[in-house]
Structures are given as C-alpha cells and as structure tokens.
Amino acid sequence: MPTILITGASAGIGAALARVYAEKGWDLILTARREAALTALAEEIWKTHGQTATVITADLADPNAPAQLVAAITERGLTVDGLINNAGFSRTDGFLTTDPAAHDAMLQVMLLAPVALSRLLMPGMVQRGFGRIINVASLAGHMPATGGDTLYGPIKSFLIKASQGLWLEARGTGVHVTALCPGYTLTEFHDVNGSREEVSAAYPAWMWQTAEHVARVGYEACEANRPQVTPGAMNNVMKALAKLLPNGAALKMVGGHAERLDRL
C-alpha cells in the first residue's frame, strides 16, 4: 500500500485529507505538534478504514525538523510515496506589532519546511516512478496581499509558484504535484488566529466550504495531475477578478475587505 506524509494533520484540512487518503487505500504518516489529536485521528482511521496511521510529532518551526522527521520515518522502515504540506497558521495583528519570532515561525513552517520536505522526499518518488505532492496554499495566494496579515498571502503565492515549477520538473516521472488553494473553510484556523467572530460576521454561510469538500477536490486534482486547483465557483470568480483588475483596483478591493473586518 502507498504511504503519504501529512503535516499539520491534527485538525482541519490536514485531518480531512488524512481521512480521504485512508478511504482511498493509503497508509498514513501523521505529523503535527499535538500528539493526542494525532493519536485520536490514527485510531479513528484504523477503525473506519483499516489503514495504518503512524504518528510522529514534530514542530516544523524548528529548521532542523524536516530532516529529523524524514530520519524518524526512515528509522521506522517506512517509504513515503506522497507528501501533503499542510501545516500553517497566520498572524493578523499587523506586521509592525507582531513579534518577529512569529514571522520567522510562519516562514519556516509554511515556506521553508515544504521546500525542505519536497527536496528530501521527491527524489525517491521520481526514482520509484510514483509520487503525489499536495501543497496546501490558499485563494489568498492569488489575491493582492492584505495589511494586517501581511505575510500570509505572499507565502501562499510562493507555494503556488513552487508547485508549478515542481509540476513542470516532474512531468513524465509518475510524480503528480498540485497546489490546493481553498478559500474560507470551516476549520479551527480562524479560531487560532483570533479572527473567527469577524470573518463569520463578514461573510455569508454560502461562501464557506467544509474541510472534507476541500480535501476531496484536492485529492481528485492531484490524481488528475493538475498543477493548481481552487475549490468553489465563487472562489474561482474572485481569483479571476484579481487577475483582470488593475493593481490599484485589486488593492482597493482587498483593502476594503480588511477595513470591513476591522469595523466588526
């Protein structure tokens, strides 16, 4: 059975992707900082799908974590056939008022760790002639950056572009690479960054998608070897508008979005 490594697998889109891949017959390696949540998910997956889920805790904010994680996987005699770079978080208090250490952690977890893990694991996939990589980006990566959550969008833009480059390099090797770009998704993400009340009040229920829906769209897109997928018709309309509008108009649009949240 193929085995897939999922970072940030303790909740939200990461956990939903774990359930989808288990349903499709994959064994799993689940990693995040919260061991109890990972263990509970691993037990659920075994009971529901009969798939093995190995739990390895890691804090990807540590620059040494990707290499240590791969070493721990190798020590267990496991082969990684798929990689989902999902771990991430945001800081919405503003660039100038956020602790620089928090920005360093964002860049390490969401940008440098995916690069390192891809570089460590993709050569084996190419050699074996089979592999799957999903980089969980965001609709924000297609939009102009917003004030307040200043680094989040640019980091996700990087993931989209890096995924496109990897997709081009992997053509003909049996390795599929996809950037998954969800919009607003019902997870604990906004609870963690403290914006749940504001975003829930600002946007109607029909704009939100479930983590399970996002995960299934991501799975199907990666199997089809699509370099990028954005779940949801409205999200694709917003992505298209951001590309078509002049820079000034696009910045005004996202600036109005930020001001709307601040007023709530």
Rank of each mutant, 00 (worst) to 15 (best):
W46F: 11
L41P: 07
A36E: 08
T57N: 15
A40M: 08
R34N: 13
A58R: 09
G50W: 00
A37F: 07
R33L: 07
A53M: 03
P63L: 13
T54C: 04
I45V: 07
A42G: 14
L60P: 12
A37R: 11
D59M: 04
T39I: 11
L41T: 01
T57L: 09
E44V: 02
E44W: 00
T54Q: 03
G50L: 04
L41A: 03
T39R: 12
T39D: 14
V55R: 00
A42T: 10
E35W: 13
T54A: 02
L60M: 12
A61Y: 08
A53L: 07
T52Y: 06
V55Y: 01
A58S: 10
R33A: 05
L60V: 03
W46A: 11
A42N: 07
I45N: 00
E43N: 15
A36T: 14
A42F: 02
K47H: 10
K47W: 05
R33Q: 07
I45L: 01
R33N: 00
A61V: 09
T54M: 07
A58C: 05
K47I: 13
T39C: 15
G50E: 01
E43L: 15
L38H: 04
H49L: 04
L38P: 08
G50T: 00
A53R: 10
A61K: 12
D62E: 04
V55H: 08
R33E: 00
E43R: 15
D62M: 06
T52W: 04
K47M: 13
T48M: 09
A37G: 14
R33W: 05
V55D: 02
T54H: 01
I56W: 06
